[in-house]
């Protein structure tokens, strides 16, 4: 039974490490598409600070949690995530989504304005 548990343990470890290594390596060398990761797609398509802050928040929280897991002494449960981090993540997402909504509304306004201008121009000309 012990040998079975050990085999399963190494098997799962190998799969996890293999997957993470391949995906991490491909991300680093650019074989996994990362074009536009920090660009605002709903707005003007330029660099988006909202996306950058969400990326940094995500990576920080992920790293912090991994360190918490490695340091934990209670192995019967995953360590509790501090509420402050959840609030920070929620705020980060709110900023990101707010930026998206702003971009979308600006886009709609631009389209509406161009339509109105397009309709009024011939009338003025005629």
């Amino acid at each position: 039974m012990e040998a079975l548990a050990t085999a399963l343990r190494y098997e799962t470890l190998a799969l996890l490490i293999g997957l993470i290594s391949i995906i991490g390596y491909r991300l680093l060398i650019g074989k996994i598409n990362t074009d536009g990761l920090l660009k605002d797609k709903t707005g003007d398509g330029k660099f988006s600070p909202g996306r950058l802050q969400m990326l940094v928040t995500t990576l920080s929280i992920a790293l912090y949690y991994l360190l918490m897991v490695m340091k934990t002494t209670e192995t019967g449960r995953l360590p509790d995530m501090p509420t402050e981090f959840l609030v920070a993540l929620g705020g980060s997402h709110a900023i990101y989504l707010g930026g998206k909504v702003h971009g979308m509304l600006a886009n709609k306004l631009k389209i509406t304005l161009s339509q109105v201008m397009g309709k009024t121009k011939p009338e003025n000309g005629g």
């Binding site: 996890l16 990362t34 969400m54 992920a62 897991v69 490695m70 995953l78």
Partner: peptide, 23 residues
Amino acid sequence: WASLSRFQFLIFTFVVSMSLFYL
């Protein structure tokens, strides 16, 4: 285009799966 939400999902999936395995 690369999606930040999907990237975040990927990171959290790896973190939670590694933590689960470790514990």
